[in-house]
Design a protein around this nucleic acid. Structure first.
Length: 497
RNA sequence: GGCCUUAUCGUCUAACGGUUAGGACAUCGGCUUUUCAAGCCGGUAAUCCGGGUUCGAUUCCCGGUAGGGUCACCA
């Protein structure tokens, strides 16, 4: 058989293997995204596997939360704990017999042995190394005649050759490590569960994983992994190291302690999943061209391991906000309406003026006022949306333009006269012609005559009750002739009170 | 402390020895203008430092410096 052909035909299998220790933050999601994108690009298989071998750190409900997060983002898997697959089960805690099988192979080969030390003894060794300012290495204390492994003690891999290690990384190229990176690490803990170091290698082998993507904190463990592949005499998968994601303030790697948020919080604040994907894709990878906005589909098409960055990037919310806005613009009208509806709070939905027709009309207006992802939430919270659905409440002095020249004693009367004249002009427009262009056309000469501020400010304020809002022509068209005139008439009533 | 790894505008980045070092976000200015947005146009702003290799270094090599990682019965 042609060897090269065989390599080219290799089916890509990637996996995302989180531990159920809580919510998912930026870093974890990005790892999932790249592994998923790579599998999808090459029509491969993407596996979701849960690494629940640390019972102490496990957080109840995490698995569902992880699944919910991935589903929101549109990162779908072909095999996983919820849907099963040819390599079931996909929870490591249910695969203990598999790990034991491989552990026994290693014991038989003389490449694994029981660790007889107590916690205190081990800590003393560690302390001593620390005081001497040398790295702690268990193999310096390797017991001469270890007892038979009965499952109550940890099982360690016996590193047979202490040497420099060199390997190929799909992103970083040639990586190397000194001999102190090699140590007799624990395969199976005294509680019977395997360590990550052992379990992931066995599972990747069993599940046929071809490409492993993980963050760079694992680089220093790779020599140990390679020693285990060799001990088991199995083929190494391709490895791709992902750059770290740093917190924006400070230089530390972004973690939950640094305020890395649950990704689902972004969903709840109004960020779109495709914006999140776009944003995450660009922390740690960039395309050949200068495109900034990509759909998930486009991302999958052009994603490439070779263009993953070497150095870490910072999480920059301002960029995410911009990307989110760009994706909001790309939505169809229907999707935009759906988005607006989703974030309008229940109390507003109860208002008499809340209709499908009104939502349709105001959607573009609201969208252009959103700059941050969470703006839709704060606009609703600040009552900046209510006036579309109900007559605003305000005080008569608010109707005066800040730099208005109306100072006369009869200023209320004067202003109500202006507004009344506006009403007269509006009445001349037929119902079917009541567009913002026509409205502007008919009122404009009058605003020139009196002063724009003194006509347009009160008009806009009467319609919206807000200092900042869309212009009065746009609002008039949205409300329609009848409602517009009603609101202006109410302003006159208020002025005359 | 050992080992590993990284280094371009404030931020995310492009450049695979030869560019006026490009783009995006942010910022600043202008246009528009009835407020707020949006939109359009434009500006400021970067190769960590020091050696080498080369006709020529952001790019290759070495050394420093700085950041990050790791040295768990966590992943």
């Amino acid at each position: 058989m042609n060897h090269n052909m065989n390599i080219n035909k290799e089916k890509v299998v990637t996996r995302f293997a989180p531990s159920p220790t809580g919510y998912m933050h930026i870093g974890g999601v990005r790892t999932a995204l790249y592994a998923w994108a790579y599998a999808r690009k090459y029509n491969g298989t993407f596996i979701l596997r849960i690494e629940d071998t640390d019972k102490d750190r496990e957080v109840k409900g995490s698995i569902n939360h992880i699944i919910e997060t991935l589903k929101w983002l549109g990162i779908n898997w072909d095999e996983g704990p919820d849907i099963g697959g040819p390599h079931m089960p996909y929870l490591q805690s249910e695969r203990l017999n598999i790990y034991k099988k491989y552990a026994n192979i290693l014991i038989e080969k003389g490449l694994a042995y029981a660790d007889p030390y107590t916690e205190e003894e081990l800590n003393a060794f560690r302390k001593k190394a620390e005081n001497e300012k040398i790295p702690f290495l268990y193999r310096n204390h390797r017991p001469e005649n270890p007892p038979d492994w009965d499952g109550t003690m940890p099982l360690r891999l016996k590193i047979k050759e202490i040497k420099n290690t060199e390997w190929h990384d799909e992103v970083r190229g040639t990586l190397k490590a000194g001999p102190e990176a090699l140590d007799d690490f624990i395969l199976i803990k005294s509680d019977g569960y395997p360590t990550y170091n052992f379990a992931h290698i066995i599972d990747d082998l069993e599940m046929g994983v071809t490409h492993i993507m993980r963050a760079d904190e694992f680089i220093s463990s790779v020599p140990k992994f390679l020693a285990l592949y060799d001990a088991l005499d199995i083929e190494r998968p391709h490895m791709a190291t992902l750059p770290p994601i740093m917190a924006l303030d400070g230089k530390k790697k972004l973690g939950k302690r640094d305020g890395a948020k649950d990704i689902l919080e972004y969903r709840d604040e109004g960020y779109l999943p495709e914006a999140m994907i776009n944003f995450l894709a660009y922390i740690g990878w960039s395309p050949e061209d200068e495109r900034e906005i990509l759909s998930p589909k486009e991302f999958v098409e052009i994603f490439d391991l070779a263009r993953i960055h070497h150095s870490g990037g910072k999480f920059n919310v301002e960029k995410l906000d911009w990307i989110n806005k760009e994706h909001l613009k790309l939505l169809s009208i229907d999707e935009q309406e759906k988005y607006i509806r989703k974030f309008i709070p229940e109390n507003i939905k109860q208002l008499p003026g809340y209709t499908d027709e009104m939502i349709k009309k105001i959607t573009p207006l609201i969208l252009e006022r959103i700059s941050k992802g969470s703006d839709i939430i704060s606009m609703a919270g600040n009552h900046e949306l209510n006036y579309f659905f109900e007559q605003p409440v305000y005080d008569k002095n608010s109707l005066f333009f800040k730099s208005s020249k109306i100072n006369e004693a009869n200023k209320y009367e004067l202003l109500s006269k202006y507004i009344n004249n506006v009403i007269l002009l509006l009445n001349n427009i037929s119902d079917t012609d009541f567009t913002k262009e026509k409205i502007k056309e008919s009122i404009w000469p009058y605003t020139e005559e009196i002063g724009r501020g003194d006509i347009l400010w009160p008009m806009r304020y009467a319609l919206s009750g807000l200092e900042k809002s869309p212009d009065p022509f746009v609002l008039s068209e949205i409300f329609g002739k009848e409602e517009t005139i009603a609101r202006l008439n109410l302003a006159i009533q208020i002025l005359r009170k």
